[in-house]
Each structure stands twice: as C-alpha cells, then as structure tokens.
Amino acid sequence: MTDSLTAATDVDLVVQPGDGALIRVPAGGRLRIVDTEGNQAVDTLFYDADDIANRYSAFDTIREQGAVYLSTGSRLLSGRLDELAVITSDTCGRHDTVGGACAQESNAIRYGERTRHQHACRQTFLAYGAPAGIGQRELGHNINFFMNVPVDARGSLRFDDGISGPGRYVEITATRDVLALVSNCPQLNNPCNGWNPTPVQLLGRWT
C-alpha cells in the first residue's frame, strides 16, 4: 500500500473530536483521513468549489454504484451526477453514507432530552461551512468515514461497532475543485466512535 502522503503535504491537520475543517481540494489533489486511534466516525460533505449547489448526494452515489457502502473505487457523485471525487485508497474496507450526521435535534430524539446540549456534527458543519456560504439548506446527507452501519435483506439497519483500527485511512482524489466539509464526530451515545471519540489527521497533497 502506497504511503506517499505521510511525507510532503499541503495540509497536515489534526482534528479533535467535536471540531471540524473546511478544506479546498484542487482537481487532482488527494485528501487522506487517518483514523489515528481507530473506530472514529468522520462526517464529511463535498461541494463543487465553484458552485456549492452542486453538492455530494448520498443516495445518487449509492444508486449509481448499486451498493450501499463506500470503498476504493466509489465515485462520489453530486445531485447533478457530476463526479466530485473518487475514493482511491482505503485501508478500512467500507464506509457508511446512509446514517447521516448527528445533530442536537436528532440526539434528543434518539437518546432523550438529556443529550440535547451535547455537541453534534451538524453544529460543526454549520460553523465551518458558513464562510463558504454553506448553511442549513446546503447540508445534504453526508458520508461517515470509518462508520459501520449494516443494512440487511429484511430492511433493517443498525449501528455496529466499527471495523476500523488505529492508523487506518481513506483517501479521496478530487475530480474537480471541491470543498471538503469535515466534522470529527463527538457522539458519545452509540458505538460509532467506540464510545470514546478520538482525533483524526487530515493529510492533503495537491500535486
């Protein structure tokens, strides 16, 4: 497995759980997300950098690849069916794009009112997206890198313990200039972060 991104980089950023990032990845640039301690969900949205209305669409991506999970070779499509990026390397194995991002409001529904004021990914999306004009209307359904949400033939879905591990990574290559809006998930109430959210590293190389 090539590991060229650990050396020269245009971005080398550690993102703590509950924090996020907005990164412009130029066409041809590679962005690697490293699950430094393992079992950490990284909620991510992609936008065409020149037109944020042309944004990642989870269900168009799922339909066009004929499969629920994302892995190496998955083309990350917009709602216009433009290819925004491709997953070009993946040492985890598969990633979720059905489970969406946690929000204060959905936490209150899933875990009760006591969790309403815990930090949540959609807070991070709104905070880091604002400078690019990404507001509530612009939040589509996201990717959860390293998260394990099996669906089965009976139509059930569950949140399982992760299949990632320390140092595993996923790498995307941008097909056009894109904005990657990242939230390192602070969720404490389900096994998506192994009950213990940990930092991730973002490594970018543009040439």
Binding site: V98, G100, L157
Partner: peptide, 8 residues
C-alpha cells in the same frame, strides 16, 4: 431527513 428517520 431520511437518514435520521432510518437510524432513529
């Protein structure tokens, strides 16, 4: 929100 509907 379909993802929230499904996971809940």
């Amino acid at each position: 929100n379909v993802p929230d509907t499904l996971k809940a």
